[in-house]
Design a protein around this nucleic acid. Structure first.
Lengths: 344, 344
DNA sequence: TTTAAAAATGACAAGGTTGTCATTGACAGC
DNA sequence: GCTGTCAATGACAACCTTGTCATTTTTAAA
């Protein structure tokens, strides 16, 4: 009358393993979960039984009892270009190393709060990564608080107290770009902004302004146009900037996609790159190498951001909730073919 | 002495709902699962109780009892470019509509069989989507059989009997590309191949050959170079093709990334596009619009492939296992700026 | 040796849901 | 009014694991 479950069709349970190893199921559980108080000999006996039977823990039962899923989530907004996809790769890599799995979900349209709540309640994740702009949506964050689900925000708009986030130093990176252009002799440098309200976009702009100020150049608003991180805004921006009375000799776009738009417009307008115009981007993704000429840009370690965010969630699960220091990862200026010394 | 669980801190259970609505928990279960035999009035009463309490079904308990997770998986190999990312978007979109969630996992390095088995056993998915080349890995597929997990392969190498797959008509699409070039007067058309052993790549090549044959042009092996779907292979391919004694007047690359490589090489070699050389790609993703000149290409409905694959898994779960007809989605020739009539 | 403390192990229940089977109620046909 | 049928609902167990607490074994100290 033992509940054995050892009917051949069904996968073996912890009870089968216990019988096989001659211990109680609780001891098997201890072995599975790497708990301490188990005699080495017993542990070996159980482990060999596990191997013999091909036992695999049932995630549902475990989740039900222990309320931990060993699954993380990645949450982002639809149509945000390559960025989330690259974060995903990094996150997956780290999840594999740590034995976790990853549920991906996108938010979309109105009612984000409700979507987030549904996501959390239906998946019971151990933690979630978010990219902008979702990670800046207060009502989404509120849903996380309600479900008490830890999260790490990647490059968020504003730090929130007692919350960990991860990113790069956008200000310094943008400054490096402009310093590079200044070093090439450029003085009239145009800027195509990123999304309004996007922290990183704002810092890149500040870096641009600051670098120019440092060499005593007044900010010239006719050299600054708005944008939204996409290709089309780069095309429009270039069109506007190149039509001014004293057009810039270099353009810095807030990301690679917009910079690609600048190149495209320049090509079609007969403006030679980098002969007539130097162009810089930001991100250093695949696109920056696939356009011609290849783009001088800042390489962001997006993959690494994903990896590190996962690592934070798993390893510092408790601390994540109350850590105040952001994790800042290194970036790198990639000098390529789209920038050249100013023609005299 | 009722087990109520209605301590304020804990989320409400099916029992709380049952008490609130004055029915048994089984009836609540029936309502949740949209079963038939429930009086309309009762159903409403239960639903309002659910809403009042903010009840959300516990996925672990459900999974444990019913052995269904309402979660699908997407499995692919690392570093396969944009393709899997686009499939992901489509899959996510459909999952949201159907109330499912999606676990993403990549396979990587040796031991794919074991990685797949671990994935399946640790997640108990209701179904999985796969893209090439994972979906052509026999030992991975064997793991799926073992776990009896339904799957849909997207554009796989070979059809397998009693298995559903989904894709586009690569042969016809490639033929359309070549017909377009022929219509522009081109006769010497180069081809840069995709990955060896990739069904779609092979069919694109066959389409190329067939279209030329149709107008009586002998296949010329000096116009055909190997490739592997990436940017670099496009650069190399173009270099080789343009260095021949009678270089082609048009080049068809097996995907957009390779075509981008062709453009890049051509630009740097001073070959004007499309003046001196027409170039076509295949995929129609974001990159085809971001390079200059924008690429004449075949638009593959990759997003739709993801959506449809999910829909197949959810709606035809039983039939997926024994359906023999592939699902073929429509493609579209996008004529853009990288092709022009042959200069006389 | 005896005793106390610590380590190792086990018995049992609980976690929330759904499947099985039983029960109740309503209604048609005679 | 009685019986048979079918629709609606409910009682209870089972799914598999882990937490709690009790019990047994081992080790160290007296």
């Amino acid at each position: 009358m033992k509940t054995s479950g050892k009917k051949p069709g069904n996968p073996p349970t912890i009870i089968d393993v216990a019988n096989e190893a001659g211990v109680s199921m609780k001891t098997v559980s201890r072995v599975i979960n790497n708990e301490v108080r188990v005699k080495e000999k017993t542990r070996e006996r159980v482990q060999s039984a596990i191997k013999r039977l091909g036992y695999q823990r049932n995630v549902f039962a475990r989740g039900l009892r222990a309320d931990r899923s060993l699954v993380l989530g990645l949450l982002y907004e639809t149509s945000q270009g390559d960025y989330p996809a690259d974060v995903l790769q990094g996150a997956l890599s780290e999840c594999r190393k740590k034995g976790y799995h990853l549920v991906v979900e996108t938010l979309h349209g109105p009612n984000k709060r409700q979507q987030a709540a549904r996501f959390l309640s239906q998946t019971r994740l151990d933690g979630v990564l978010m990219t902008p702009p979702v990670c800046d949506n207060a009502s989404v964050l509120k849903a996380f608080k309600e479900f008490d689900t830890p999260y790490v925000r990647i490059s968020p708009q504003k730090p929130r107290k007692n919350e960990c986030y991860i990113g790069i130093d956008d200000f310094a990176a943008a400054k490096e770009v402009i310093d590079h252009l200044i070093g090439l002799g450029h003085r009239r440098i145009g800027f195509i902004k990123g999304l309004d309200g996007h922290r990183a976009a704002g810092e890149r702009f500040s870096g641009y302004c600051s670098a120019l100020e440092d060499i005593g150049i007044q900010r010239d608003d006719s050299l600054i146009v708005s944008g939204n991180f996409n290709f089309e805004s780069g095309v429009e921006g270039a069109k506007t900037l190149l039509a001014t009375e004293y057009p810039p000799t270099a353009i810095f776009a807030a990301n690679d996609a917009a910079a690609a738009g600048v190149l495209s417009y320049a090509h079609s307008a007969g403006v030679s790159i980098p002969g007539d115009l130097s162009v810089c981007g930001f991100d250093g993704g695949a696109i920056s190498r696939m356009i011609w000429p290849s783009l001088t840009t800042i390489h962001q370690p997006i993959f690494l951001l994903g990896e590190s965010a996962v690592s934070l969630l798993i390893d510092n699960n408790e601390e994540v909730k109350k850590c105040n220091e952001p994790v800042i990862l290194p970036h790198k200026l990639i000098i390529s073919e789209s920038t050249a010394p100013l023609r005299s």
